[in-house]
Each structure stands twice: as C-alpha cells, then as structure tokens.
C-alpha cells in the first residue's frame, strides 16, 4: 500500500533559459486524490507532463506507479492523462474518437466507454466539437478511463466548466476512484472545491515544491492564532507561515497542533484547506520547510514550546 504513484527526485525542466520546474522532490502515495496547487507558472502542468512522459526532464528523474520510469511503456500503460484543453478532434464524431483511441492504445475497454457515454446521453454520431463543454470534458474523461488506468492525471480539468458540469465531472472522477481504486493527481485553482475532493496536497511555487502532505496531517499541524497585534512580533521565533495584522488584532497561521498550548490572550482556531493553501501561496518563502506530513528538519511538536 506504500506504492508511490509519482516519485520525483531533483526533477527539473528548463524551457530555454527558464526553469519551469526545479529541484522538485516528492512522493505522492497511491490511493489519494492529490491536488497540485500553485500560481500560474508554478510548474503544475510541467510536473504533470513530465509524469505522463510527454516531456523529458532537464534534470533529475521521475517514476510513476511504483518505480516505472515516466515515459516507459510500462508507465504509459498504467497512466491516463487529460490535458488542460480537453484534447479532442473537434471534427470527428464521438464514435470515431472512440475508434481512434482504441486503436492507439494497447488496452481499451470499448464496452465501458460506450456504456458510460450512453449513461451520460452523449450521442455517438455527434461531432466532438458540437458537444457542450461539460460533455466534451466527460468524453475526454471516458476515453481516459476506458484505458483502465491505475493513475489518472488531470490538468485543470474543470477550469472551463459551469458549476453543474464541474460537479458532474468530479463526481465521475471520484466514482471511478471508488469503483476501481484509481489514484488521481490533478491541478486546480479552485481551492474551495478541492476542500472536499483532495486528500493530498502539493503546493508548488516558482517551480519548487513548497508543501506536500496528506491534507489531514497538514490541517492537524496548523492553527490560526488570533490576538493582539502588539504581541504578534513575539511569535517571530515560531514557525509563522502567514501574518495578517490590523491596528489592534492580528491573525497568525502557525505550525502547531491542537495539543500545543495557546499563548495567553490568544485564541486558536483550526484551519481549512483553502485558508492553509492561500496562506502559503501568499508567502512563497514559507516553502523552506518540508510538508509536516513528511517533516524532516522541523517537527511540529517543537513549534510552540
């Protein structure tokens, strides 16, 4: 059960003189929906493309599904990737897209694909380009799932979809996970939505991994402290991730567990995924520490001693 679906060591990708991703080391365990979060240009798509074997690393290496080199045949057989722009041949009827995908892949479950499209009411004769945005996304997902992957990579899968289509798309992805145990790694900006979808978080910033860990562990090891602004400076010694200071009151996101003592005059509140991710995104420098889940240098227990 300790198989990593993506494992990268010193991974880097340079386009011209610019590093899109550098010194990226992470290990995403199987059985999760892992969310890649970060500002535009942080390296999310690059990481997904490297894992899918669609790009060659400039430095380091990446393996998938328990050590298969990315891009190898063994890796490709186990991975399905839906790229950002829902890549479909817009002039081909749906049936031809199925046919094409079946011929391009060693494994393709035609019955599953047809059954799924029928369930969704997507007509086989219609040209892919004439489908609604939600249907196009569902078609791309169906083609990906019909390959029966062990790892599903999704790059900004719902960015272009309306709320109902987003919900239906994510429901389909998560149902596939419930049915077949497929692991999912997806990039997204929709933090509020990730709250109930993702149970593993990778925050990327400026081409580097800022935070990585199981959401549950991350949330359990961070607290929001609220208290007098005049005292906020006193916590400089502690691992403060983000500080919001008003005239009188300050909010500090700190690394601390619910068992750590709360300073007198301060209140501690649990944080959600969105609040946590936003705090880190606002403080790209706070990425020096590894994710608490796999903490190496700083243990959260020493945080508020």
């Amino acid at each position: 059960m300790s198989v990593n679906v993506i494992e990268a060591g010193g991974l880097g990708k340079r386009y011209g003189g610019t590093w899109a991703l550098r010194d990226c080391s992470l290990a995403i365990p199987a059985g999760h929906v892992a969310a890649l979060v970060g500002p535009n240009g942080a390296g999310k798509s690059t990481l997904l493309n490297l894992a899918a074997g669609l790009a060659e690393p400039s430095a380091g290496g990446v393996t998938v599904l328990g050590g298969r080199p990315a891009g190898s045949r063994a890796a490709a057989d186990g991975i399905a990737f839906v790229a950002q722009d829902t890549p479909l041949y817009k002039n081909l009827p749906v049936a031809d897209m199925l046919h094409l995908t079946r011929n391009l892949n060693r494994r393709f479950d035609q019955a599953y694909a047809q059954g799924r499209l029928a369930e969704l009411g997507i007509p086989l004769k219609r040209k892919a380009g004439k489908l609604s945005g939600g249907q196009q996304a569902q078609l791309a997902l169906t083609l990906a799932l019909a390959r029966r992957p062990r790892l599903l990579l999704l790059d900004e899968p719902v960015a272009m979809l309306d709320p109902v289509a987003r919900h239906d798309f994510m429901a389909a992805v998560l149902t596939a996970m419930a049915d077949d145990g497929v692991s999912v790694v997806l990039s997204s900006h929709a933090l509020a939505e990730l709250e109930r979808v993702a149970d593993y978080l990778v925050l990327l910033s400026r081409g580097r991994v800022q935070v990585a860990g199981e959401v549950e562990d991350l949330l359990a090891s961070h607290r929001m402290l609220t208290g007098p602004a005049a005292d906020a400076g006193r916590y400089a010694e502690r691992p403060v991730v983000h500080l919001q200071r008003g005239e009188a009151q300050a909010h500090l996101l700190v690394r601390a567990t619910p068992h750590d003592p709360v300073p007198p005059g301060w209140e501690a509140h649990p944080v959600g995924l969105e609040e946590l991710a936003l705090a880190y995104l606002r403080e790209p420098g706070a990425g020096a520490l590894p994710g608490p889940a796999r903490g190496r240098s700083t243990q959260t227990s020493e945080v508020t001693r």
Binding site: G31, H32, V33, H167, D168, M170, A171, L174, T175, M177, A178, R196, V197, A198, D199
Partner: peptide, 11 residues
C-alpha cells in the same frame, strides 16, 4: 455518496 456529492471516497 461519492457520485452524488462529488467527494473523495476516503472521506
């Protein structure tokens, strides 16, 4: 539950 709420099966 997963299909209706679009939440993670692990949840």
């Amino acid at each position: 539950v997963v299909a209706a709420l679009a939440i993670n099966p692990n949840t």
